[in-house]
Simulated assay, not measured.
Amino acid sequence: MKWFACELHTHTLHSDGSQTLGELAAGAANLGFDAIALTDHNTMSGLSGKAEIEQKYGLRIIPGMEWTTFYGHMVTIGLSAFADWRQANRDGIDEGIENVHRFGGIAGLAHPFRIGSPACTGCFWEYEIGNWSAVDYIEVWSGTFPSIQTNNRRAFDLWTEKLNEGYRIAATSGRDWHAQGETDDPISVTYLGIEDDAVAGNGNSTALSLHEEMLIQALSEGRASITIGPLLTLTLAAGGAFYAIGSTVPTAVERREAAEEPIRANLTLDFSVRTGLWSLPNQVCRLKLCSNLGEELNLEVPYSSDGQMMQLEAQLKESAPHIPRRWIRAELWGTVRGVHVLIAFTNAIYFEEGGYSR
Rank of each mutant, 00 (worst) to 15 (best):
G17W: 04
L332F: 10
E165N: 06
C285Y: 05
F4A: 05
P281L: 11
L79A: 07
S117R: 08
A83C: 10
G246K: 01
L277E: 02
Q308C: 09
W327Q: 04
A207D: 05
E165Y: 10
D94I: 02
P324L: 11
I36G: 00
L293N: 03
R255E: 15
A171I: 04
S305W: 10
V75S: 06
F113V: 02
L231M: 07
V339C: 01
G239C: 02
L234A: 05
V301T: 03
D34V: 02
I62N: 00
E98H: 10
E295Y: 05
E352Q: 10
Q87C: 06
T268R: 08
P118T: 06
T251S: 13
E221T: 12
F345Q: 13
D136G: 00
T76D: 01
Y71Q: 11
G229V: 12
G64P: 00
N266D: 15
D84N: 14
L299S: 08
V273A: 08
Q217D: 14
G239Y: 02
G174Q: 00
W159S: 06
I77K: 00
M214K: 03
G239M: 07
A238Y: 01
I53D: 03
F271I: 09
E161C: 12
F351P: 03
M1E: 06
M1L: 12
Y243T: 04
R102E: 15
I323K: 07
G201W: 01
F33A: 02
G355H: 04
I61G: 03
A81Q: 12
D270H: 03
P262C: 05
R114V: 14
F242C: 09
I36M: 02
A238G: 06
R153S: 13
H11L: 08
V140K: 00
A224I: 08
N298Q: 11
Q180F: 04
P186W: 03
A107Q: 04
V341Y: 09
E195F: 10
D94M: 04
Q283G: 10
Y303W: 13
R60H: 10
L158I: 02
A314V: 10
C290A: 15
T268I: 07
F345C: 15
E331L: 08
A26D: 08
I328H: 01
E257N: 15
P118W: 06
